[in-house]
Amino acid sequence: MIEWFAWVQLAVAVTAGLLCLVLGFAGRVPSDLTLGALAVVELLILVQIVIAIAAPAFGNSPTGSALEFWVYLVSAALLPPAAAFWALLERNRWSTVVLGVAALSVGVMVYRMLQIWTVQSV
């Protein structure tokens, strides 16, 4: 895990999450903007997966449980597509809120992943 990238990812996920929550509570249906925000969150997770596969080869290994790290990473990767799929099935304001919940959950998971990678067993 590259620390600054994780922080960027966390910031993007939280921003996207808050954006979707605000727009959802304001009554907006899922739009290109909110779905796009989730797409960015998902893209960063995919990049994170690549980084997590490659990093140990460069001497950057998790201090904590690699298994736990990967369970979080895979779970996080599943959330945005699931939320987006659901948003397309039934387009109403609450779908936008669900997008926000998914993005914020990704944020929490990224933070946990960062902890596992950097400080869990230091």
Binding site: W94, V101, A102, S105, M109
Partner: peptide, 18 residues
């Protein structure tokens, strides 16, 4: 589940996954 119930389901789903 429609309307705000979807949010409830979503949070339940995330918690179940976690």
């Amino acid at each position: 589940m429609s309307g705000i119930g979807r949010v409830l389901v979503a949070v339940y789903g995330v918690l179940a996954l976690a």
